[in-house]
């Protein structure tokens, strides 16, 4: 009954979002520093999940190389804000722009591949960046850079930055799905060959997704390294980022907007818990993923949707 009110009511949904937004905005005033820092991580991972999901879940671009943009974003922050003393937010924005430019120039080559080849190709690109940065004097080789400019922020500041980035990422995807392109994206997700015979330009649509994701990933990388405050090529360009994001989105439900949100909450909370089991934590994570997929093959949100038709963040077109 409650669920019905939420999903059908005209005012139920907006009201619900207002309450959630109010809770998020006021979080530092009524909870402790630990909770705030956890929420910050959830928001950043959720943002990454939205972007990876936009590519893998809608455009059919299964990327294993999103860490390329986390790295570019992180290094832009480090270099521009510490080495050149630029404003922090400008540095983060530059990270997004450099990611976008980089994505634009590698896309003709990457888009010649599809499926598994695209996955491997995008991974190779990220690995090449890792090698390049590890051997680049300008970024102090593999020793990394201490992002001293980030010291001016406390946990609450970082949380608000993450909140802006997280909400922006979700909003970008939501607005995209509500726009005309949204129909093309959902059609492509469900059946790309049928979409093409209806006049949808697959290449253009995919490229648009890729560029949006890359830009946003660069920004998210900047925000993430504002928190980490120390950047190393081996960590910034690590496949670990993509593994975490893949885990989240698949658990939460690929090709849905809620999937990355649910996935991020579970992933971050679970990870906090797993700190107690160093060494076997990755194993536990893997086994959990397999168990969830066995019970809910389309991820939590996908399976729930198939069974009950429920959608929280819906881009549905109403008739008439």
């Amino acid at each position: 009954m409650k669920l019905k009110l939420l999903s059908k009511g005209t005012y139920g949904k907006p009201l619900c979002f207002l309450v959630i937004m109010a809770l998020l905005v006021t979080l530092p005033y009524w909870s402790g520093e630990y909770v705030v820092s956890i929420m910050m991580l959830i928001l950043l991972y959720m943002a990454m999940g939205q972007m990876w999901n936009l590519m893998a879940g809608y455009a059919g671009l299964l990327s294993l190389g999103m860490q390329a943009f986390i790295g570019i974003g992180g290094y832009s922050l480090a270099v521009f804000s510490t080495t050149y003393g630029l404003n922090i937010f400008v540095s983060i924005l530059l990270g997004g722009i450099f990611s976008l430019i980089f994505a634009f120039f590698i896309s003709p080559a990457l888009f010649k591949m599809s499926g598994v080849y695209f996955a491997i190709g995008s991974w190779v690109v990220a690995e090449s960046l890792l090698l390049w940065f590890s051997n680049w004097e300008f970024v102090r080789y593999a020793q990394g850079i201490n992002i001293t400019s980030a010291y001016q922020f406390d946990t609450v500041d970082l949380y608000y930055i993450a909140l802006v980035v997280g909400v922006a990422a979700a909003l970008v995807v939501y607005l995209l799905l509500r726009s005309k392109s949204g129909l093309a994206l959902m059609a492509m997700r469900d059946n790309s060959s049928a979409a093409e015979t209806l006049g949808i330009e697959l290449y253009k649509t995919k490229l648009r997704c890729y560029l949006i994701s890359s830009f946003m990933m660069g920004i998210i990388g900047g925000a993430m390294y504002l928190y980490q405050a120390y950047i190393l090529p081996s960590a910034a360009f690590s496949i670990g980022w993509t593994v975490a994001v893949t885990f989240m989105v698949i658990i939460g439900g690929i090709g849905t907007m809620e999937g990355p949100i649910i996935g991020a909450v579970l992933y971050v909370l679970f990870n906090q818990y797993l700190y107690q089991f160093p060494g076997i934590s990755m194993m536990i994570l893997g086994v959990t993923a397999i168990l969830i997929i066995l019970v809910a093959p389309n991820g939590i949100m996908g399976t729930l949707h198939n069974k009950t038709g429920i959608e929280i963040l819906s881009a549905r077109r109403n008739v008439g």
């Binding site: 129909l183 093309a184 959902m186 059609a187 997700r189 469900d190 059946n191 060959s193 049928a194 979409a195 209806l198 949808i200 090709g255 949707h305 549905r316 077109r317 008739v319």
Partner: peptide
């Protein structure tokens, strides 16, 4: 080859 996770209306609308 319907777009399975879209509604009937949305399928037509996309066309």
């Amino acid at each position: 080859r319907p777009f399975e996770k879209m509604t009937v209306y949305e399928n037509i609308l996309t066309g």
